[in-house]
């Protein structure tokens, strides 16, 4: 066994990375599908290597094939959940894609402010919260939009508990606050802690993070006025997409809005949500 560059015993004697066998590729594909409902098709097979090699290294294994052998041989080890979490954690950033947040600021929040004014209550849901940037972006947007004295509840959910633990801390690296966050928000809502930036408590306490598998989201704490479920459906098969959309709609208030990712649509998946275009953003409205 040759240990190259101190990165662990990842190479065989010839220095070649042992490739994931066809059987183990199918096994991992099935394992992730059963565990999370997410389809890793052949165009995304590089994700196995990109996401799982850190676990292979940490466990001092030789290859992804060894990792497969390990989880086949052990029934209930933490690594089984860690594999699912590694495969389902998405890139996220503050105010990702901008357009849906512009739609909220310019059109939807003013509409809801007028509609919900007497009760002064709004509920929002970030359905694939990951490390929290989307949920916290919504919180900052609400404060900037003059909702300070309202009863505001933002739920942030994700299938991966480990990433939610990070989200709850509200602490981000310099690279993370550089991405997408307007600098005026940085100086208003963050404090500096060494090399990292800490979200102030006034934002953190607006968001409650909880683990949730979207495929089992049949009942929730709704109704929600706004749901962000962006860049999630793309990973699921059509049947699961339809189920998830129905589950979200069941907790969406009448007149509430759903935001999907720019590459996602409800065509052939849901017949009752109404398409609404705001500038460059498309959102879906639950009929009154």
């Amino acid at each position: 066994m040759t240990n190259l560059s101190g990165v662990g015993p990842l190479f065989d004697a010839t220095g070649q990375v042992e490739r994931l066998s066809r059987d183990n590729y199918r096994f991992l594909q099935r394992y992730v599908l059963d565990g999370s409902g997410i389809v890793i098709d052949s165009e995304k097979d590089y994700l196995f290597e990109a996401r799982l090699m850190p676990l292979v290294r940490r466990e001092n294994l030789r290859s992804l094939n060894d990792l497969c052998a390990l989880i086949k041989a052990t029934a209930a080890t933490p690594i089984r959940q860690e594999i699912l979490e590694a495969m389902t954690t998405n890139e996220t950033l503050f105010f990702r894609d901008m357009a849906p947040f512009e739609a909220l600021r310019n059109s939807i929040l003013p509409e809801l402010k007028a509609k919900c004014g007497p009760a002064k209550r709004l509920r929002l849901w970030s359905a694939a919260a990951s490390s929290g940037q989307e949920a916290y972006s919504l919180a900052m947007l609400l404060l900037e939009g003059g909702f300070q004295n309202w009863n505001l509840q933002i739920a942030g959910t994700d299938i991966a508990e480990s990433i939610l633990e990070r989200a709850r801390t509200g602490r981000y690296s310099q690279l993370e606050v550089n991405r997408g966050l307007p600098v005026h928000y940085l100086i208003k809502y963050f404090t500096r802690h060494g090399l990292e930036w800490q979200l102030k408590d006034e934002i953190r306490r607006m968001v409650r993070f909880e683990r949730l598998d979207l495929r089992r989201a049949t009942a929730g704490p709704g109704p929600f006025d706004i749901v962000f479920c962006r860049n999630v459906l793309i990973y699921f098969d059509p049947t699961t997409k339809r189920q998830i959309l129905a589950a979200i709609q069941s907790v969406l208030a009448p007149g509430g809005y759903l935001s999907l990712g720019a590459a996602e649509t409800i065509i052939n998946l849901n017949e009752t949500l109404e398409k609404c275009v705001f500038g460059k953003a498309t959102l879906y409205r639950n009929p009154e």
């Binding site: 310099q174 690279l175 606050v177 550089n178 991405r179 307007p182 600098v183 005026h184 940085l186 100086i187 963050f190 404090t191 500096r192």
Partner: peptide, 26 residues
């Protein structure tokens, strides 16, 4: 990257602020 410096730049009239290191995405 000190917050006082970020504030000074904005007060002077900068519209945005990127802290090095940066990436093309940033």
């Amino acid at each position: 990257t000190h917050i006082d410096q970020v504030c000074a730049a904005l007060e002077a009239g900068a519209n945005e602020y990127v802290m090095k290191p940066f990436t093309p995405e940033i």
